[in-house]
Simulated scan of single mutants.
Amino acid sequence: MTGAVALITKGDAGALRRLGWSTGELWMLPVVICAAAQVLLLKRTPAGVTQGPLLTASVLVVLVSMLPFLALQPRLQAPVDAGALAAIAYIGVMASALAFWLWNRSVAAVGPTRASSYLYLMPLYGAVMSHLALGGPLQGYQAVGGGLVLVGLWMARSPPARSGSSARR
């Protein structure tokens, strides 16, 4: 978590104190809680329920829950061109359906506790993808934060050390 915080705050530890919370950031709190609940509930998926129906049900719940917020939004006047349609298709297929399908399979394969530790890679992926896709320079804080994330994952995967007399046997 320390590595992820270093990446998010750009290496400025004081940035956490100076954060001005916007409405969008506050809305992320229930999103994170729901995501954690979804991971925990995946353990309780009834036998015989495959990924297709599970993913479809999840998408429907999200879409229905978003309708009231969509109704409150002003109408956008943005042009719809081939680039916008390609971006929407990418988000809908790759970043949503395929990503959730792979995530659900991962949680089923390794368990929610082990799978959730890999969420700390998201800021690192963001930094690397920014560099690769947008040509942004890699910064020192990104290297330090990314290193801390990788060390944390390595520590989480390592077997716990035995304590006391049982280790001497």
Rank of each mutant, 00 (worst) to 15 (best):
residue 85 L to Q: 02
residue 145 G to D: 06
residue 46 P to G: 08
residue 163 S to P: 14
residue 125 Y to N: 08
residue 118 Y to S: 09
residue 88 I to G: 06
residue 97 A to H: 01
residue 26 L to Q: 05
residue 82 A to G: 14
residue 151 V to T: 11
residue 156 A to D: 14
residue 24 G to M: 09
residue 34 C to D: 05
residue 17 R to C: 10
residue 57 A to Q: 04
residue 69 F to S: 06
residue 72 L to I: 03
residue 53 P to D: 12
residue 81 D to G: 10
residue 96 S to M: 04
residue 47 A to C: 11
residue 55 L to Q: 05
residue 117 S to V: 08
residue 42 L to H: 15
residue 144 V to W: 04
residue 98 L to D: 03
residue 26 L to A: 11
residue 155 M to R: 15
residue 83 G to F: 09
residue 79 P to T: 11
residue 66 M to D: 01
residue 73 Q to R: 11
residue 33 I to A: 13
residue 110 V to W: 03
residue 43 K to A: 12
residue 111 G to N: 09
residue 22 S to Y: 12
residue 38 Q to E: 13
residue 144 V to C: 06
residue 69 F to E: 00
residue 108 A to Y: 01
residue 151 V to L: 15
residue 28 M to N: 08
residue 49 V to D: 06
residue 65 S to C: 09
residue 34 C to K: 00
residue 69 F to I: 01
residue 36 A to I: 07
residue 165 S to T: 14
residue 41 L to Q: 04
residue 26 L to H: 04
residue 12 D to S: 05
residue 60 L to F: 09
residue 19 L to I: 15
residue 14 G to K: 09
residue 65 S to G: 05
residue 9 T to M: 15
residue 117 S to I: 05
residue 53 P to A: 12
residue 6 A to C: 10
residue 84 A to V: 14
residue 82 A to V: 15
residue 1 M to A: 11
residue 46 P to C: 09
residue 103 W to G: 04
residue 85 L to W: 11
residue 12 D to M: 07
residue 7 L to I: 14
residue 96 S to C: 05
residue 61 V to N: 02
residue 111 G to P: 11
residue 113 T to S: 13
residue 67 L to P: 06
residue 165 S to Q: 12
residue 81 D to M: 06
residue 119 L to V: 10
